[in-house]
Design a protein around this nucleic acid. Sequence first.
DNA 1: CCGTGTGAAATCGTTCACAGCC
DNA 2: GGCTGTGAACGATTTCACACGG
Lengths: 225, 225
Amino acid sequence: MSSRGNLRSAKADNLVVPKAAVGRLSLYLRQLECEQKDGTATVSSRRLGESLGFSDAQVRKDLGYFGQFGHAGVGYRVAELIETIRGILGTDREWPVALVGIGNLGRALLGYRGFRRQGFRIRAVFDLDPKKVGQSIEGIRVESPESIVARVTDLDIAFGIIAVPADAAQHVAERLVAGGVRGILSFAPVSLALPNDVSLVQVDLAIQLESLCFRVRGGRRAGES
Amino acid sequence: MSSRGNLRSAKADNLVVPKAAVGRLSLYLRQLECEQKDGTATVSSRRLGESLGFSDAQVRKDLGYFGQFGHAGVGYRVAELIETIRGILGTDREWPVALVGIGNLGRALLGYRGFRRQGFRIRAVFDLDPKKVGQSIEGIRVESPESIVARVTDLDIAFGIIAVPADAAQHVAERLVAGGVRGILSFAPVSLALPNDVSLVQVDLAIQLESLCFRVRGGRRAGES
DNA sequence: CCGTGTGAAATCGTTCACAGCC
DNA sequence: GGCTGTGAACGATTTCACACGG
C-alpha cells in the first residue's frame, strides 16, 4: 500500500525512526510555533537547529525520516512544517486523556497549559481516596477508581496519566488498559508491566535530579565524596 | 578482588559512561531498595534486569562502568550495591535545592516525596509574583527573585529547579547560575543557554505525551491521517 | 553449576560531505 | 549563493559469548 512512488519512501515506511528523533520533532514544533509568532515565514535547518542546540544535519536527517518537506535554496516554510509535524505526531486533533491521582502532582497536571496547547484534554479524573471522590477540581468531577474501565471505554480515551503512589500504579495501569487506553504516561517510580501493544512513557522526577547530581560531580567513581 | 567496594578499574577512570547508563543506575537503585524491603539479600544481574525490562548483560555492563561490585556465582549483595550506587550518584548525602516558581507544578515539586527520599531538600523557594512573595508554603517562605543570587550563594545550593513560565526561564536560570548552582532541572518548555560547566536537565511534560501519541499511532508517515 | 566481568561483534544514531535544485 | 536530501563514515551503545571465580 505504501504511499506514492519512489524507492526513497522505503525508508519512511520502515518504522526505523530513532526514538530520540521523535522527541526532537516536538522540539522543532515548539521552536517553529515560536518563529511563527515572530512572523518568520521560512527557516533553514541551520537556524532551526541553532536555536535548539542541534546541528543542521541533525535537523534535516530527523525530518528526512518522515518525508521531504523542505524547499531547496529556501529552507522550510514555517506554517507548512508546523502542520506537517503535527500530522506526524498526531497532535493535529484533540485527544481525550484520563488522569488518575489528584494529589499535588495530579492537580498540577490537570491545570497544565502545555497539554491543552498540544491538543490533550483531560476528560476524566480518578482518585483512590474516597474523600476526594465526588469533589470537583478545575471543573471536573473526581471519580472512583472503580469506574475507570467503564468511563475510559465510554469516552474512548486513548491516553492515561498515572500520578498515584508507586504501590497503586500497577493496579491502576491495568484498569486503564482494560478500559482500552493505548498509551500511559506514568509518574510513579515503579516499572509497570503492560501488554506490548500499550506504550509506556515513564517520568521519574527524582531520577532527573539524580543524573544531574552525578554529572555535576564529574562522574566520580564509587567510594567517597 | 571484588569483595569490598571502591576499587576503580581502568575503565571507571575514563569518563566514557553512556549517559543512559546513569539513568539506569537510578532505576537499579530503586529496584534494589524494593528488594531490600522484601528481605532479599542478593540479586543476580538477570533478576535485577528482568524486573526492570533490561537484559542481564546490560546490568552487568552498566555496573562495570564504575567498578566491580558483584560476587561470582552469587550475584550482587543488595545492601552493599545500594550503598555503592548511592556513592556513585552522590545521593549518599543531602543536597540543598532551590525552587523557582510556586505555581501548581512548583507546589507539587515542593511536596514531592521522591526528592527527599533521595536526599534532595528544597531549602529556598522563589516566585515572580509579588503577591506570593512573603507567603509560607509547606513551611518555607516564598522569596522574591531579586534574592536568588544572594540566597543561593548563602545556602551553598548546588541545584536549581525551574518551574516558571517559558518567557521567564532564561532570566531565572541566569540568576541561579550567578548564585553558583551547578545543575538545573527545568520544566519550562524553552531551551536554555547556560555556561557549559552547569548541567541542564529539561523535562517537558507535553513532549512526553506527544511521543506517546506518535508511538501509539504506529509511527505513521506524514501526509494524511 | 551459577553468575560475574569483559573483549569482540553487532546494532543503532549522528555527523560528514557532496550531488542536485532554486 | 544558499539550502535540502541522503549515502557513507564515524562514533556510541547494546548484545553476544566465553573465560574465570566461588
